[in-house]
Nucleic acid binder design. Structure first.
Length: 587
RNA sequence: GCGCCAAUAGCUCAGUUGGAUAGAGCAACUGCCUUCUAAGCAGUAGGUCGUAGGUUCGAUUCCUACUUGGCGUACCA
């Protein structure tokens, strides 16, 4: 909405600039592109056009040019409402906020939860892969960043008009899976998640840890695991039975975690179901000559011509690798649901893997290989460094959610708001999720981030609960307005009453929202929405702290401020949905 | 060694795609709860934007080199 206002002013300035330059120079010249900016202070206006480059070209002082342009534009009666200002070398515009507020109010009333969405992806089919846990241990903090980004990007793509299919690839085969199985066989003594009362994924994880301890003392452990893998690939009934049993335990546990964290998928793939298909595809490539076989029987691809080295695709014993099954999975996915784009949400340490994967698929002749994208995100570290499972510093996802929920519950009780919030349990868990998702999405995905446990459990300052609190305050205010007999139908919205500086800023910020949705989509970056949300909330918080809404004086002013608050609330709601923050009507 | 990425306040992060006096939160200090929820608001203090060059009217932003850190370069995933 702000962009159309910006664009109309830009066109106007460009036209005048061009005709003035032609007049001064006596001929038509190609001018450098005009940039539009936001002035650093509200007093300077809402839009800024820096004129340095043009002033140089026309050999005049920038402020002179600014004045000249201002005069010329003011003569035009087709210009939009608003005011022109000369601010040194800048030509600034103070836009007509009342008109903007009126059209925003119409748009938000009409679109509701769809306000801010666009159709730039026009029904494009996008598959998004994320999470992808191993079935030998529970989820940890690393998965949580992955899940937050995956869910958020999925929602953002939808908001940009795409049809999204969320998929999860379960890593349920391989030597690491056999390790936990072997340890269970050796030390399990028949105990089960049920008999111990443990969550299935934690139960299996316990045996994965036990394997590591055992392997330290017994060098044969590793070879035993390899042997078990071979028996697994040969469908040995004993191994298969154990595998089915333990996989189910883990997957039941993971399903519970996903449910608690609000994560869902449209489809699950399992490595155990794709690796054989991957093998056959690699062999096809061998036949067609794009791959080659070494003397020892292993199959390779040579990517040295594009500086990617040689890469093995099948082991000498014919068993498959990570790459093998990923080739199979990609092809299977395209068959299942032909996509226009496939986004892999996977940690940055696997960049090389995906470069190779995309080239291999392209060598196999799949044209859609160019539509594959690796959304690479950075590591999550602790203040004291990397998380290490050996040192027990890995942050467990279930535990963290539990801790945060308990903290939120404590806050509600301490503030004696049980009655106000109603469902205390549900509210606590919503606060925990909001805090977590916002904490993890605040940072640009590309960058490594530091997870500070002490900071993450704080609900003050720039946090998810702060944002939720603003939403709850507005919601509560609107309820009070209605319960006190306020009627939004009866008293019309007069936008010209919103004249305060903070009110102008709020209107602008609301109008900016659709652009943030578009940009976070184009850049695959949820952190833009987080920054936006915080700016909006802070603005609102300051404004409503200083200016009464329900006791604003006249009925009309109350009505106008209620409208502004309601618009902020709708935008908060809409943006929350894109970054995994539950909206709360009270907290 | 080679490749990719990062470096902004004590800490964690923004920074409108090259423009005006580089911004937040946390931590520290100071005010504000008979007034729409204090999970809040306002204020003080805190900066050689890793270093050195270059391009430009203008560089935290682009280029080059260097320094530091991370990741990768497995018949692991």
């Amino acid at each position: 909405m702000l962009d159309t206002v910006r664009q109309s002013w830009k066109t106007l300035v460009e036209e005048e600039l061009s005709s003035y330059a032609t007049m001064v120079l006596g001929q038509e010249v190609a001018l450098p592109p005009l940039t539009v900016q936001t002035p650093p202070k509200p007093e300077l206006g809402d839009l800024a056009f820096p004129l340095f480059a043009y002033a140089k070209l026309l050999r005049m002082a920038p402020p002179m040019l600014a004045s000249e342009l201002k005069a010329r534009i003011e003569k035009r009666d087709d210009r939009p409402l608003g005011e022109l200002l000369v601010a040194g070398p800048y030509l600034n515009i103070r836009i007509d906020m009342s008109a903007l507020a009126t059209s925003l109010s119409f748009a938000i009333a009409k679109d509701g939860s769809a306000y801010g969405t666009n159709n730039t992806l026009g029904g494009k089919r996008i598959t998004i892969e994320f999470s992808c846990p191993n079935t030998n241990k529970p989820l940890h903090l690393g998965h949580m960043r992955n899940d937050s980004i995956g869910e958020s990007i999925s929602a953002i793509m939808k908001a940009n008009g795409a049809l999204v299919r969320k998929v999860n690839l379960i890593n349920n085969r391989g030597v690491h899976i056999c390790k936990s199985m072997l340890a269970y066989q050796k030390f399990g003594e028949g105990e089960t998640p049920q008999s111990t009362g443990m969550k299935g994924d934690h139960f299996v994880g316990k045996y994965y840890v036990k394997f590591a301890a055992w392997a330290k003392e017994d060098p044969s452990a590793e070879t035993q695991a390899q042997e078990m893998l071979q028996r697994w690939e040969e469908d040995d009934p004993v191994v298969m039975e154990l595998w089915h049993l333990m996989n189910k335990w883990t997957l039941d546990g993971l399903a519970e975690s996903y449910k608690n964290m609000g994560i869902s998928f449209d489809h699950f793939y399992y490595e155990s179901e794709t690796y054989k298909f991957g093998k056959s595809e690699i062999l096809k490539g061998l036949d067609s000559g794009v791959f080659y076989r070494e003397e020892d029987g292993s199959v390779w691809v040579d990517l040295e011509s594009i500086k990617l080295d040689k890469k093995v695709l099948l082991r000498k014993d014919g068993t498959s690798l990570y790459m093998t099954q990923d080739v199979g999975t990609a092809i299977m996915r395209h068959k299942d649901w032909p996509f226009d784009s496939l986004i892999y949400v996977v940690a940055s340490e696997q960049q090389y893997h995906f470069k190779v994967l995309f080239h291999v698929l392209s060598l196999l002749g799949y044209e859609w290989a160019q539509d594959l994208h690796h959304l690479s995100y950075g590591m999550v570290n602790l203040p004291e460094g990397k998380m290490k499972s050996r040192e027990g510093t890995v942050v467990d996802a279930d535990e963290l959610v539990e801790q945060l929920t308990a903290l939120a519950l404590g806050e509600i009780r301490a503030k004696q708001r049980e009655e106000l919030v109603g469902d205390v349990e549900k509210t606590s868990s919503s606060i925990a999720l909001g805090a977590l998702n916002y904490y993890l999405l605040q940072v640009n995905p590309l960058k490594d981030m530091i997870f500070n446990p002490a900071e993450s459990i704080s609900f003050n300052g720039n946090t998810g609960p702060y944002l939720q609190y603003m939403g709850a305050r507005i919601s509560s205010m609107l309820r009070k307005y209605e319960s006190e007999g306020g009627d939004r139908e009866e008293t019309g919205f007069d936008s010209s009453l919103l004249t305060l500086g903070d009110e102008r800023e709020l209107i602008k910020q609301i109008a900016l929202y659709p652009e943030v949705v578009a940009r976070s989509g184009a850049e695959l970056d949820p952190s833009l929405l987080c920054t936006y949300l915080y700016d909006l909330s802070r603005l609102f918080s300051r404004w409503y702290h200083d200016n009464p809404v329900l006791k604003a004086g006249s009925k009309e002013l109350v009505r106008a401020r209620i409208e502004l608050s309601a618009m902020v609330m709708q935008v908060l709601k809409n943006a929350f949905a894109l970054v995994g923050i539950p909206f709360l009507h009270s907290m």
